[in-house]
Amino acid sequence: MSLRIELQEQQKAAMRARDKARLGTLRMLLAAVKQKEIDERVTVTDDDILAIIVKMVKQRKDAAQQFTDAKRQDLVDIELAEIVVLEEFLPTALSQDEIVALIAAAVEQSGAQGMQDMGKVMAVLKPQVQGRADMGAISSVVRQQLA
């Protein structure tokens, strides 16, 4: 089943269960997917939806941090609840060992010799780790291996 259909089914289930918080988050996610389709005039794939979810989780984490700094625990709780719902649709996270192995394979596959080839390595890695690991953390590990 495609991720979009699964999201729509989960939305229907949230409506039936009268779970307003979950329903609101799912509607927001489906609206972002629809917006991408309209803006770019394309049919989104599961990879596109994963990219949207990753972006939304990152936004929620940033917002939660700002609300924590402002001592607004009520808003932090809302953001964290949305993160929990969004992360249900992400694939399982990669372990550190798996990340290192993927990076080593990508360096070998791209024939990277130094820092000037970082873009080649990241291009190989991105489709493999999208939604399963933080790209910032992966970038730093790639820098260490190429340096």
Rank of each mutant, 00 (worst) to 15 (best):
A133I: 05
Q145G: 08
M135P: 06
L23D: 02
F67S: 01
I38A: 10
M28E: 13
A14G: 02
A32N: 02
A133W: 01
R16A: 10
V54A: 14
F67P: 06
D97W: 03
T45D: 02
S2P: 11
A13E: 13
T68E: 15
M15I: 07
L94A: 06
Q66T: 12
A133C: 05
R16W: 05
V100M: 10
V100I: 13
Q11A: 11
D62A: 11
L75M: 12
V57W: 01
S110W: 04
V141P: 01
D19T: 08
R41E: 12
Q116Y: 08
A81Q: 10
L146D: 01
L3Y: 01
M118R: 11
L23V: 01
L125W: 04
K55Y: 07
E40D: 09
R60T: 03
D48N: 12
Q65F: 05
R60E: 14
I83H: 05
K126T: 15
E88N: 11
I83S: 00
D117F: 05
R72M: 06
V124I: 12
A123V: 11
T92K: 14
E9K: 15
Q96A: 15
M135Y: 07
K34D: 01
P127I: 09
I78Y: 09
L102I: 13
Q11M: 14
P91S: 05
L86F: 05
R27L: 06
A112I: 04
A123E: 15
R41V: 09
A51Y: 02
A64F: 04
A106L: 00
V100C: 00
A70R: 09
V121K: 04
Q116D: 15
A147M: 14
Q96S: 15
D69I: 07
A14Q: 02
G111C: 03
R22N: 02
A93E: 12
Q10W: 05
L86E: 02
V54K: 10
V129G: 02
E98T: 11
A31K: 07
T45K: 03
A112G: 07
R22T: 07
A64Q: 01
K55L: 09
K126P: 06
E6W: 08
R41H: 13
R143P: 03
M118E: 06
L146N: 06
I38T: 08
S95L: 00
L50N: 01
A21E: 14
L23F: 10
V76T: 01
A31E: 10
Q66F: 11
M28R: 13
Q10K: 13
Q96I: 12
Q65H: 11
L7H: 02
A93N: 04
Q113E: 12
